[in-house]
């Protein structure tokens, strides 16, 4: 009963209240270790265990979940995640359903596809950037995120 009333209030005042107090989207980041569980029949199941601590060399799975909690469609949604300086991005592990993935090597100023990114090299002039050079990853949704819809973006990195 109380929930219904509360929901109604939000619905009534939602449009203006949300834009002032609350955004249209909710964003959540988790860090986890991937573990493979093998049962007696040899079937493998992958699961993610939230990580409290890790040692150098550990692989961490970062997952960013985004939800449209408003009643309006969100357009040109871009999720950007800075790779922690202690982490080395593992090439080819960034993905997100319905997104285009691009990378930055200049602290998030500009983004591009891996083959477009170059690093100034004192000797060779410029060189193609490697995964170690990436500072940020960006997922750009190909279509608007409808009201109530959600999605996720994910990558893996190794603790240096």
């Amino acid at each position: 009963m109380y929930r219904k009333i509360l929901f109604s209030i939000i619905t009534l005042f939602g449009a203006t209240a949300l834009s002032a107090q609350q955004g249209n989207l909710e964003l959540k980041t988790t860090a986890a270790k991937q573990e493979v569980v093998v049962d007696d029949e040899g079937n493998q199941t992958t699961r993610l265990i939230p990580v409290n601590t890790a040692v150098p060399g550990d692989e961490i799975v970062y997952t960013v979940t985004f939800s449209n909690i408003s009643t309006e469609s969100a357009e040109n949604v871009r999720v950007t995640n800075p790779i922690p300086s202690q982490m080395a991005f593992i090439p080819g592990t960034a993905f997100g359903p319905g997104t285009d993935v691009s990378y930055s090597v200049d602290g998030g100023e500009t983004f591009g596809a891996p083959e477009e990114l170059t690093i100034a090299d004192p000797e060779a002039g410029t060189r193609i950037a490697t995964a170690e050079d990436y500072t940020h990853i960006r997922w750009t949704l190909k279509t608007p995120l409808d009201a109530g819809a959600q999605g996720f973006a994910r990558y893996r990195a190794r603790l240096r």
Partner: peptide, 22 residues
């Protein structure tokens, strides 16, 4: 080791304030 994502988006072609993750 800290990580915080950010989302940028538009509603009705109007840019909204970015939202950070938690």
């Amino acid at each position: 080791v800290d990580n915080r994502a950010q989302v940028d988006y538009e509603v009705n072609a109007v840019s909204q304030l970015p939202i950070e993750s938690s």
